[in-house]
Nucleic acid binder design. Structure first.
Length: 966
RNA sequence: GCGAAAGUGGCGGAAUCGGCAGACGCGCUGGACUUAGGAUCCAGUCCCGCAAGGGGUGGGGGUUCAACUCCCCCCUUUCGCACCA
């Protein structure tokens, strides 16, 4: 078989690697370890398209390269196999999700294996394996048995002092008062501190899917899958207290080699802000208020605001004097207390509106502020003024305290609200000059366009807007001043912020608030606790038992399933249809639910875990995937962790990576892992796009109906030439390229090489079938460079010769420069340029009549991480018996990288006018002299005088010249 | 609206530190071999120009002997977030 036959070669070597367990990693050894991980796939029914193996190709090349460089490499693969699609399919067809999942896994395994990746297949796992589920549930119970102690001090592995750690629940101090309440009170107290806890919370209920959806699964008020309507209903849910770890999730990002944008996204998602909590007395100024204020001053700021105060959160406590009204979220518990009798109807109506209006309409209506007055009042503690309390949907119950002080002068949303409802606006921060200038330019335009009648005021003002008249026009300006400025109109008998720059004003008011017992510094997060319950069948059951009373009803106490009773496996069912109730399909498994334990009756938890659960810790199980006694062995974990390189799509930038990091930190706190962070270096591969073809009426034409010929695309039936647009691959666009297509046509080596050649790993890039041809030609050329194609035996090309004499100097220079740049490129994951360098090598040597074997061998070594099958075959042709996979990587010889003579460009006024050939070590004087003697340079300098000469040795010479004046 | 990233030939892209813009590949043009070419090989291919030469990295300005690269303003595209007090 003289011609390059990828299919025969690839099947042969894949079989060889598998038989010899070539890529199975040892859990110890003298070599340095390297753990390289791909984000494992969800085994969908469609299988893999050409986008999937992009990241896998990159990591595989890197692993193979590093093995040759002497590393002990762990490179595993598995399947994230729970999830809604299989369940949806089961609902439609009655096929058990396990059956669908297993079928899909074997298809995807086939596709992955066909690409010849060097995975350690002995470690293959699926999140649905009972042995895996067991340990996922074990981690859940660990969360259940852990509370977060924000005061606990400890030393991190870097020797840094840290505060706040997850601790065993039995170490939670129980206050005497709780203890006195008996065993049940203690239980409830503990339950309220656990990292896994139950809460009644509003959830996105999708009746059509029969399940509750996470916020990220709801898009514009409709389900991400299936586009069904979603409404918000309250339901008992399992939650994970990720918010306890908010600070550590931000802090530890610093130590990671992750793309900056991803770190930024995680920070924004956590959304830490610093401000103050302030209590506002409910009522009107008078004796009651005076008494309340006096008590507060004496007792200090309480943990709970009590029945006669509204607690708000603000990042701008310095604007307290400008709070002219308050707004509560419609769901706020104090709304009932505050609402005056004559306002009740209106308030109830608004609350109803706020609960039913879809997220979609809320977004669409943003900017137009709605709300109603409750009829109730509060007292601004800074100036003792009576201010009205409103409710509005622009205040969210789930953030901060669900209530705000409204400072319309210095908050854009409050200003819009105040305008809509004609509430007073007060200036309490003097803006910067720059801001005044911007407002003035707006006002100047306003003069030209229209003049609005404003009672008692000249509008627009005749005098320029500035510190003198700002307070008179603060309510009419288009924008609130929200930046840092200087305090104004902000003083009472005890404190004055006037003239203070914002940061100092914040500090000063904080001191006063503390002293007066009405406020304290506070930190809030956008991050919410993680809603961990799913009302689905195809997920890990939550291993919790609910105790039943004599009537068979849950009595509210819960128990963890014993560790020795794990895993709790799903009951066999044949009807997966939603029950129509939020409880989920497991409610139908009545026998499975009933548990008798030490003489008591229990009901199993029927909620299952979200798909994230399994993917949160698979990287740990890969360290020790067959361990039946523990989730992983500590020694193995210590040896392999952390993951040195993690490659996957940017779509997991926030959730998967944040959830994994959270679990990892809990595992660290409880002593089960040795590193603070799981993933040391992260790389996001870019998306691979495809071409969508449309006919003249803009209708999509699927690939199955297209003839590709003459460099164009033509409709098979009509013959019409079709226009192509580069777009994301999707089923609906009919432009998905299954990975089997290029692999079937050209083979795995060509496919993976092309994926890497299109462009940098991180960029979005379009797939092109013609581009694949180019790579295929390159592999053919490489083959022919070494193999004699005219023979019908597999033997060396006659141009390749073996000799004891060293190869020609030029050959060695080409070789060693290639080694040098390819080594660097592979280290940096710059596969596209590495391939280019190898192409240059082949272009050079195929033109050589005599090709030294000593140059061909290192070439094949360099090609082998990128195109492993053809390289193994060529390695045999070159006379080697051992597999190339662990052959040592060639070293570049510096003697052949440094040129003895260089061609250096000579510029005149920045344009290249000539080139000189000089010894590499020529000094500046020599270079300058040589440059001035170059005939072309001479010609250009005629009639010019030299002003200056810049000589950069080894790089270039620039002569600055000007025409001579006659 | 806020935040981030990116704009280089007909196309994908290269230029590691401010030092020869367009490596490598696709496509295209011409040629060789050939019964044939959608195989292979050779030559050419940023734009204008016969040439000399000139112009050129989204647009405008700036710093520098020298700018794809650094700074300022603007435009476009992609991604993320979405009333977070």
């Amino acid at each position: 078989m003289p011609a390059y036959d990828p299919h025969a070669i690839e099947a042969k070597w894949q079989e060889y690697w598998e038989r010899n367990r070539t890529f199975c990693a040892e859990d110890a050894g003298s070599k340095p370890k390297l753990y390289v991980l791909d984000m494992f796939p969800y085994p969908s029914g469609e299988g893999l398209h050409v986008g999937h193996p992009e990241g896998y190709s990159a990591t595989d090349i890197y692993c193979r390269f590093k093995r040759m460089k002497g590393y002990n490499v762990l490179h595993p693969m598995g399947y994230d196999a729970f999830g809604l699609p299989a369940e949806q399919y089961a609902i439609g067809t009655g096929t058990h999700p396990r059956v669908t999942t297993e079928k899909n896994i074997s298809n995807i395994r086939r596709q992955i294996k066909r690409l010849g990746f060097s995975y350690d297949w002995d470690r293959e796992l699926a999140t649905t394996d009972p042995e895996y589920v067991r340990w996922t549930q074990w981690i859940f119970l660990l969360l259940f048995e852990t509370w977060y102690d924000p005061e606990y001090e400890w030393m991190d592995p870097g020797g840094k002092k840290r505060t706040g750690k997850g601790r065993p629940i039995r170490e939670l101090p129980i206050p005497a008062a709780v203890y006195a309440g008996g065993e049940e009170a203690v239980c409830r107290y503990r339950d309220s501190f656990r990292l896994a806890y139950q809460a009644e919370s509003p959830v996105n209920w999708c009746a059509a899917l029969g399940t509750v959806l996470a916020d990220e699964e709801v898009i514009n008020g409709r389900s991400e899958r299936g586009d069904h309507p979603v409404e918000r209903i309250p339901l008992r849910q399992w939650m994970l207290r990720i918010t306890a770890y908010a600070d550590r999730l931000i802090e530890d990002l610093e130590s990671l080699q992750w793309p900056e944008p991803i770190k930024e996204m995680q920070k924004n998602w956590v959304g830490r802000s610093r401000g103050a909590e302030v209590d506002f007395y409910i009522g009107i100024p008078g004796a009651g208020y005076v008494k309340w204020a006096a008590e507060r001053k004496k007792a200090g700021f309480p943990g709970e605001p009590g029945p006669d105060a509204i607690r708000i959160y603000t990042t701008r406590p310095d604007t307290l004097f400008g709070a002219t009204y308050m707004v509560l979220a419609p769901e706020h518990p104090l709304v009932d207390v505050l609402t005056a009798g004559n306002r009740r109807n209106e308030v109830e109506e608004y609350r109803k509106y706020a609960s039913t209006v879809s997220e979609e309409d809320r977004i669409a209506g943003r900017g137009e502020k709605t709300g109603v007055f409750t009829g109730g009042h509060a007292v601004n503690p800074a100036n003792g003024e009576k201010i009205p309390v409103w409710i509005a949907d622009y205040v969210l119950i789930s953030y901060g305290t669900g209530a705000i002080m409204a400072v319309p002068g210095h908050d854009q949303r409050d200003l819009e609200f105040a305008r809509t409802f004609r509430l007073p606006v007060r200036a309490v921060v003097m803006p910067t000059d720059e801001w005044f200038r911007r407002m003035q330019s707006y006002l100047d335009r306003l003069h030209d366009i229209l003049t609005v009648e404003v009672p008692d005021k000249e509008w627009p003002p005749r005098d320029p807007i500035g510190p003198g008249n700002y307070k008179d026009y603060v309510d009419l300006l288009p924008e609130a001043f929200t930046e840092d400025g200087e305090g104004t109109q902000s003083a009472n008998s005890a404190v004055s912020l006037n003239g203070l720059p914002t940061p100092q004003a914040k500090e000063k008011i904080a001191g006063w608030l503390a002293e007066a017992g009405i406020g304290r510094p506070a930190v809030k997060y956008k991050l919410r606790d993680w809603l961990f319950s799913r009302q689905r069948y195809w997920g890990e059951p939550i291993p919790i038992l609910h105790a039943l009373n004599a009537d068979g009803e849950p009595d509210g106490t819960i128990q963890a399933v014993g560790e020795d009773e794990l895993p709790v496996l799903l009951p066999e069912m044949d009807d997966f249809k939603p029950t129509g109730r939020p409880g989920g399909p497991l409610e139908k498994a009545t026998e499975w639910i009933r548990v008798r334990k030490s003489g008591r009756e229990f009901a199993r938890e029927t909620n299952t875990m979200p798909q994230w659960a399994g993917s949160c810790w698979y990287y740990l199980r890969f360290c020790d995937p067959r361990n039946r006694d523990r989730a992983w062995d500590s020694e193995k974990e210590k040896y392999w962790m952390p993951v040195d390189l993690y490659v996957g799509g940017a779509e997991h930038a926030v959730l998967h990576l944040l959830y994994s990091r959270f679990w990892h930190k809990v595992l660290y706190d409880r002593g089960h892992v040795s590193t603070l962070e799981p993933f040391q270096k992260l790389v996001n591969q870019g998306m691979i796009l495809s071409t969508t073809y449309r006919n003249s009426r803009d209708r999509i034409v699927p690939y199955s109906k297209i003839d590709f010929r003459d460099g164009g695309a033509f409709h098979q039936e009509t013959g019409e030439e079709l226009a192509g647009v580069i777009e994301k691959m999707s089923k609906s666009r009919g432009n998905v390229i299954p990975v089997d297509a290029p692999v079937g046509q050209y083979g795995a080596d060509t496919t993976r090489l092309y994926e890497m050649f299109i462009g940098p790993l991180e960029s979005t890039k379009p797939w092109s079938m013609q581009g694949v041809e180019g790579i295929h030609r390159f592999l053919n050329r490489s083959w022919r460079m070494i193999v004699d194609e005219s023979s019908d035996r597999l033997r060396l090309n006659p141009a390749v010769f073996e000799s004891d004499a060293p190869a020609a100097e030029e050959h060695l220079r080409v070789l060693h420069r290639t080694i040098d740049s390819v080594s660097g490129d592979l280290e940096n994951l710059s596969f596209n340029t590495a391939i280019s360098r190898l192409m240059e090598f082949v272009n050079y040597f195929t033109a050589q009549e005599a090709r030294p074997l000593s140059c061909m061998e290192p070439f094949v070594l360099m090609l082998s991480p990128l195109a492993p099958h053809i390289s193994e075959e060529l390695w045999r042709v070159l006379g080697h018996e051992e597999a190339i996979a662990y052959a040592p990587w060639p070293d570049p010889d510096p003697r052949y990288i440094q040129e003895s003579a260089l061609q250096i460009p000579v510029q005149i006024n920045g344009r290249v006018r000539g080139r000189i050939t000089v010894p590499a070590d020529a000094d500046e004087k020599t270079l300058e002299r040589a440059a001035l003697q170059d005939p072309k340079v001479k010609k250009h300098l005629e009639g010019h005088s030299i002003r200056k000469t810049i000589v950069i040795p080894k790089k270039m010479i620039n002569i600055v010249a000007a025409p001579e004046k006659n």
